[in-house]
Amino acid sequence: MLFSVNDKFEHEFTVTEKVYATFIATFNDCNPLHIDDAFAQAKGFNSKVMHGNILGGFLSYFIGECLPTKDVIIHSQQLSFTNAVYLNNTLRFVATVIEVYESVSTVVFKFSFTNQEGKVACKGKIQIGII
């Protein structure tokens, strides 16, 4: 098995204007919280809030491109959003292997995205298979 419990992986992601615009152009989620600064501020946020599933996209990139093998498939994932992410925020991503199932070539990671202020913006678990 290529992975062991406590193996740790790190990456840095930035929610650039291009990422944000592409997400909206692709999925068309134009809820005012995501596109209207005044609306978002009236709801208590600093400015428009980035879509949580942009981080889901970063997670997909991590699994697909950053692991020591490309022979992977995502079985399941669970994300909790704990702090808002704003345009141009840079997030430190850390994933740690917490479970390995050699019998079915399956690995479970816990992960977190932490913003520049040290606050966790998103955390969760993801289970992948080695195919």
Partner: peptide, 10 residues
């Protein structure tokens, strides 16, 4: 089947 085995092992 993978999820069943993971669930049983856990």
């Amino acid at each position: 089947h993978i999820q069943l085995i993971v669930g049983i092992e856990k």
